[in-house]
Amino acid sequence: MNEALKRLSGEGVSIWLDDISRDRLRTGNLEALVKDKNVVGVTSNPTIFAKALSKGDAYDDQVRDLAVRGVDVEEAVRAITTYDIRWGCDVLRPVYDRTDGLDGRVSIEVDPRLAHEAERTTAEARALWWMVDRPNLFIKIPATQKGLPSIAQAIAEGISVNVTLIFSLERYGKVIDAYFEGLEQARENGLDLSKISSVASFFVSRVDTEIDKRLDKIGSDEAKALRSKAGLANARLAYKLYEEKFASDRWKALKDAGARPQRPLWASTGVKDPDLSPTLYVDGLVAPGTVNTMPEATLDAEAEQGDPSGDTVRPNYADAQAHMDALKKAGVDYDDVVKVLEEEGVQKFEASWTELIASVQGELEKKGQGAVA
């Protein structure tokens, strides 16, 4: 096993791969990453699936069968994506068993077009949970204001949730509260709380991208000196909030009833600025009980040049707060930043979902014509 990745895992960081594809599954690549690079989980999103469908012939046979059956495009997309997720869950099942359900998780996202519709999001979460039918599944629900009730309801029904698209500290606090609320209802419903799991995906690099753009517009030397540090500072303060929330009496009562903590997950950890170290959002966010989901390029960079050397989060709380204060003083509106990022995040996933539907529709039509011929 790679030494840097082994050290990272030893610091309490679970290494997850932010990618899945039929080709990766059928070639045994995912199994190899589990063995050689200590990958213990997988996340997916609409962009990842749209990219996977656009390459190679791995999906041809299934698409042909769906076309022959006359399946509509929405059902076809679900059949295709849940097939990959189910397979991924089976590959990761030994990890799930070995870690007593902590890791070995694979995530699938609800239709992002439902991000602001609580009832429909909950209904889709139920449907995906039923379709994949694996205990090591996570259903990804976005942390929009309308998504919060869906998160609580899914947890209350025993559905494990990966809460995604978290950018602000204020919203993260509400996500944790929704988790607590769901667990409390699950306890009332007589469910085994130890079987329910959750992670909260706090996005990192996109924060720097948006704030750096604003700092460049301000243009002063003081503003430029603040570039590319907000992503880490924001995430570190999120971990501080996590520690505070999970030290509360409310959590202690749930823990005593068998509940598992909702782990912070660092998402969007591939650097967007080529001038930055490719391992910035990995080595800079080492803390116990966390998950870092990485694109393969970031995973490879960490394996080759990573230097995870102890906790890089908790010793930096004061510096993180000082940096956020300096940004405010420089004229960066944090509340507007996170609002823009959430709106853009939903829009990007909606665009990828639309692209995925169009791609599948085209393939269904092509394969259907071929079948008739």
Results as ranks from 00 to 15, higher is better:
K224I: 14
K224P: 00
L226E: 08
R227N: 01
R227F: 02
S228Q: 05
S228P: 00
K229Q: 12
K229L: 07
K229C: 08
K229H: 10
K229V: 07
K229I: 01
A230F: 04
A230R: 09
L232R: 01
L232F: 02
L232N: 01
L232T: 02
L232I: 12
A233Q: 01
N234I: 02
A235W: 09
A235N: 08
L237I: 07
L237H: 02
A238Y: 03
Y239I: 04
Y239T: 00
Y239R: 00
K240Q: 08
K240V: 05
K240C: 04
Y242Q: 00
Y242W: 12
Y242S: 03
E243A: 09
K245E: 15
K245D: 08
F246R: 00
F246D: 06
A247F: 13
A247C: 09
S248L: 12
D249P: 00
D249S: 11
R250H: 01
W251Q: 03
W251C: 02
K252V: 00
K252L: 00
K252T: 03
L254I: 08
K255R: 15
D256M: 13
D256N: 13
D256I: 10
A257Y: 04
A257T: 03
A257K: 01
G258K: 00
G258D: 04
A259P: 09
A259I: 03
A259W: 04
R260E: 06
P261R: 11
Q262T: 10
Q262S: 06
Q262D: 10
R263N: 05
P264K: 01
T269Y: 01
T269W: 02
T269R: 00
G270E: 07
G270V: 07
V271C: 05
K272N: 07
K272A: 07
D273R: 03
D273M: 04
D273A: 01
P274S: 08
P274F: 10
D275G: 15
D275H: 10
D275L: 14
L276E: 12
S277V: 00
S277P: 06
S277R: 08
S277H: 07
P278G: 13
T279I: 07
T279E: 01
L280H: 02
L280S: 13
L280C: 10
L280Y: 09
V282W: 09
D283S: 10
D283R: 09
G284W: 09
L285A: 06
A287D: 08
A287C: 11
A287F: 09
A287T: 09
P288F: 14
G289D: 04
T290Y: 05
T290I: 07
N292H: 15
T293H: 01
T293V: 05
M294I: 08
M294C: 07
E296F: 07
E296Y: 14
A297G: 12
A297N: 14
T298L: 06
L299M: 04
D300L: 13
D300V: 15
E302C: 11
E302H: 11
E302V: 15
E302N: 08
A303G: 06
E304M: 12
Q305S: 15
Q305A: 10
G306C: 04
D307W: 11
D307A: 12
P308C: 02
P308E: 09
S309F: 09
G310H: 07
D311R: 10
T312I: 04
V313T: 09
R314G: 11
P315Y: 06
P315K: 10
P315F: 02
N316K: 15
Y317T: 07
Y317N: 05
A318L: 13
A320N: 14
Q321W: 06
Q321K: 15
A322L: 08
H323K: 14
H323R: 06
